[in-house]
Write a protein that binds this DNA or RNA. Sequence first.
DNA 1: GTTCTAGAAC
DNA 2: GTTCTAGAAC
Length: 761
Amino acid sequence: MEVDAQSSTKGEEEKRKAIVVILVGAPGSGKSTFCDHVMRVSTRPWVRVCQDTIGNGKAGTKTQCLASAASALKDGKSVFIDRCNLDREQRADFVKLGSPQVDVHAVVLDLPAKLCISRSVKRTGHEGNLQGGKAAAVVNRMLQKKELPKLSEGYSRITFCQNESDVQTAITTYSALGPLLTLPSGCFGQKNPDAKIQLGIMKFLKKVDAPVKAVSTGHSLQDSVTTEITKENDSCCKGPEGIKATAGKEVKEGEDLAVGSVDGTSSLNNVPTLAFPSISTADFQFDLEKASDIIVEKVEEFVTKLGNARFVFVDLSHGSKILSLVRAKSGQKNIDTDKFLTFVGDITRLYSGGRLHCNVIANAANWRLKPGGGGVNAAIFSAAGPALEIATKERAGSLTPGKAVVVPLPSTSPLFSREGVTHVIHVLGPNMNPQRPNFLNNDYIKGCKVLREAYSSLFEGFASIVRSQETLYQKKTERIEKHESVLSESPVDFEISHTNQLSSTDQKVKREAVDESEKNKRCKGFQEELRPNISGATDGKDNAKNEKNSRTMSKAWGPWAQSLYRIAMRPEKHDDVIEVSDDVVVVNDLYPKAKCHLLVLARYEGLDQLPDVGKEHLQLLMTMHEVGLKWAEKFLNEDGTLVFRLGYHSAPSMRQLHLHVISQDFNSKHLKHKKHWNSFNSPFFRDSVDVIEEISNSGRATLKDDDKLLSMELRCHRCRSAHPNLPRLKSHIGNCRAPFPASLLQNGRLVLAPNKDGSNQ
DNA sequence: GTTCTAGAAC
DNA sequence: GTTCTAGAAC
């Protein structure tokens, strides 16, 4: 149908244009089958260049494929390049086969990972299960570095196939392509309206793949960034191994320092932290003794000013003199080791390379605030990508010595997504280097003054970030503390109607509940209301209640869905309750999906699920979060290897708003179904921190309650690898130690032990 | 939410 | 034959 006969006015050669079709797809995606089908019926002369078979039994090479393709084109034949071609670089040489006489197409077999895996497993099945497992690993690894082709790479046509029916269409299209015909140029099939399900999956995969991609490419980046810096700082670290070793050692040191740095109430890995390099001592040749005095002096000053914040002095080189000077002098001054630590490593890889989360990093900038110049400045601009340059330009055009500028880092920056850095503070120190313009000619009186100013500006900038976050936090906690009075003093809060329309009776019910500011009374009221039917298990009363509430509720709850509601209303009747307060009840999940899995239930009548939550419940949400966090931290004290996540199901099965507090091992016999997994590991699961933010901003939580989310393919929550079924996934997650995706590591979505040694990452 | 089970997938 | 999924009933 897309085949057009070329107009007869064109020249003979042009009519006989050959095509190179670069197939793009993982093992098992059906590339060879595609070629076979087309070649079986096509009237066009085709040659299939297959890297698997070109080596006559041995593994073929890319060069062999290129030579074979070129020779076929010479003979006027069209060519299928049958190899994975998943990344741009792999494809580039084949694209170069194009010429005015040769069109280059791509056919992308972008089928679900699960399908590719099961096919490749099948293919090697006769060689035993191990082979199959290996195939799965290979497919997963390849898919993780998948880059979909773009027309800009040099194709005249790209066909995307996202399911079997797309593949069939493409086969038909190419099969019908006779020697004198051409196909229209452009991209086809990327947005196939007939493949909604698949699109849904693709959308999700793209979203969750992003951080994985950042991490994996990060590994290759590491070399270049490291060597770049090594040149400048005559470091002993020569490669990723060096970094790993030194970072590991320092993390160990940091571990000691970090013990007890978390005071019960704060979220564990969430202490605002500034990582900063030594200012002016590298290229600007500031005296190291004097510089270290100033660093320690300024840190001491600001450590006391800033309560809940840490400073990390970072140097790339283990043998760095400035580092040992600072370490020694801060030790002499007895600076709180919880608040100030030194770290050997790459300041652009503190989290990914050293498991140290620093939300703010300082840059030893140049006055133009431009990339380049080597050292920390070059490394940070390079690691942060163009986003930092743009964001910097918006804030300031240049910097004078002694000054600093705070730049919020856009979330598009790899430093943000990979390392969790939210702000970069550029700071310019005094220049003592006679080789550089405007140097201070050994005037250390002025030099020291400017360097002090520089650190003051830097730390002040950091303090402003911390303060802005702290006031937000304090405001929240104050409101929690004043919960009762807030409720009784400002019933207006309760009248803000949210998305669901409340009937006047329901509003009245709510207001009455509020007016009785003594919450015991509030609960008692419910108890009385419930008393007659409690013994009767499932009965008409519950259903009557359902009906009554159905005016405000989007969902009718079956009798089996009432147990949490009952516990919330009458906790004293239930043995499995582990904490009760006026606002919440905490219970162990009856069917835990992980080693630790508990539920924080809201004790509000009519608050059945996330869609019922509005701005008037903000304090309640924060209380639930705090209680959940407290329990997570309690478990973490007992077992530091656990990692917790707190959140809500977009569309829960059980009535009564409940917050899941669940450890990320997912080691449980009760985790049986795909939907169990996906309900905790897809966007269906709404992180408590995000819900609070959304309710606070817009008064409603974003819901992702599409059923497709619960049936989409199974992916490891850490390495994002795909698995064909739940048992396989479970055996994988039992061993997977990959770091969590960056998106989970941000904003305190994951709750970790304070002194992680990386072994449980 | 779970359990049960038919039948698909392996 | 066994494993796994998914839909209905509860």
